[in-house]
Amino acid sequence: MGISIFRGLRGVALAAVALVVGAPASAHHSFAMFDNEHQVKITGTVAEFQWTNPHIYIAINGGKAGEAAQKWTIEGASPGILNRVGWKFNMIKPGDKVVMIVAPMRSGGNSALLKEITLPSGKVMNNGGFAGPALIH
């Protein structure tokens, strides 16, 4: 049941993101450049964790299953939003093995928007509501 509801809401979420861009909102930038419909799972080792505004970034060496490791830059929400969904500034460290579900840039390359991250402890964290849910697992 849950999945069908989420699929139904996906269109609403996308439409609303477009509205937010047109509205006097405080969001930093639109997520429309990321391909939400073609999410990928990447696994790798954290090279850098930047806990900064306007977004946090996780750089990893890794990639999709069966592919050679490359550098990926993954964008997360802002520290303020992530604090509220249970993240901590020191939750991720260089050397951590992580698994992430991400929406890559439509224009290609190894940059993407985070949907969900699995930490070395097995704990799964989301990226706040505006980034939208992971659609693959």
Binding site: M33, N53, P54, S107, S111, A112
Partner: peptide, 22 residues
């Protein structure tokens, strides 16, 4: 606190559009 400290959103010189730097 919110200081716009580490912005990886940049102008793609080829298109003039937003992109996320790698």
């Amino acid at each position: 606190e919110f200081v716009c400290e580490n912005n990886k959103i940049e102008v793609d010189p080829a298109t003039g559009l937003q992109r996320l730097s790698e």
